[in-house]
Amino acid sequence: MTISRMPRRALTGLAATVSALALSTAPAFAGDDAHAKSISENCGVLGCVTQLHAEAWFYSDGDHWKLCDSDADGDRVDMSVGWDDSAGSHFLTLEVTGGQGACATGQRNIPEGKKVTIQVWHRNGANGSGKDIATAHGTA
């Protein structure tokens, strides 16, 4: 029995399509970035003024984070990065003391798919209390 040209071509096209789909599979998981801002609002008779003190980012591609001081107020800025995995709960901090425009970065390999929580705040001095704490969530 011979296979006619039409079905043979259809089978060849189907095989090529299946091969292309198998080779072009997407990664199993793509993470989500997070961004948080430590902001205060000072209101008076003429209205309110919003003041940005610090910003923090978590980047899922490479599992790294960044903290920047956004205000020349003399305060230091801090961020925390936290996640849970099979080894337990993890909590890392980062601090910037260089003033407005100064930034710091951190990196740690976090298991794929884990929820990551970042917080950012500013404080007056090494022993000052955190002010204007902001929280954001991402996924490694």
Rank of each mutant, 00 (worst) to 15 (best):
I3K: 09
P7V: 05
R8S: 11
T12C: 13
V18M: 15
V18P: 10
A20F: 12
A22N: 06
F29G: 01
D32E: 12
D33S: 09
K37R: 09
K37S: 10
S38C: 09
S38P: 09
S40F: 03
N42T: 14
V45S: 14
V45M: 04
T50C: 03
L52W: 04
A54R: 05
A56T: 04
W57D: 14
S60V: 02
S60Q: 02
S60E: 01
G62L: 06
H64M: 03
L67K: 11
C68L: 07
D71A: 11
A72V: 04
A72F: 07
D73K: 12
D78T: 04
M79Q: 13
M79V: 04
V81N: 03
V81I: 14
D84E: 09
A87S: 15
G88Y: 07
S89M: 07
S89C: 08
F91P: 00
G99C: 06
A104W: 00
G106T: 01
P111V: 00
E112D: 10
E112W: 03
G113K: 01
G113E: 01
K114F: 00
K115I: 14
K115W: 05
T117E: 03
I118G: 10
N127C: 05
N127K: 10
G128P: 12
G130F: 07
K131I: 08
D132N: 15
A134Y: 03
T135C: 08
T135S: 11
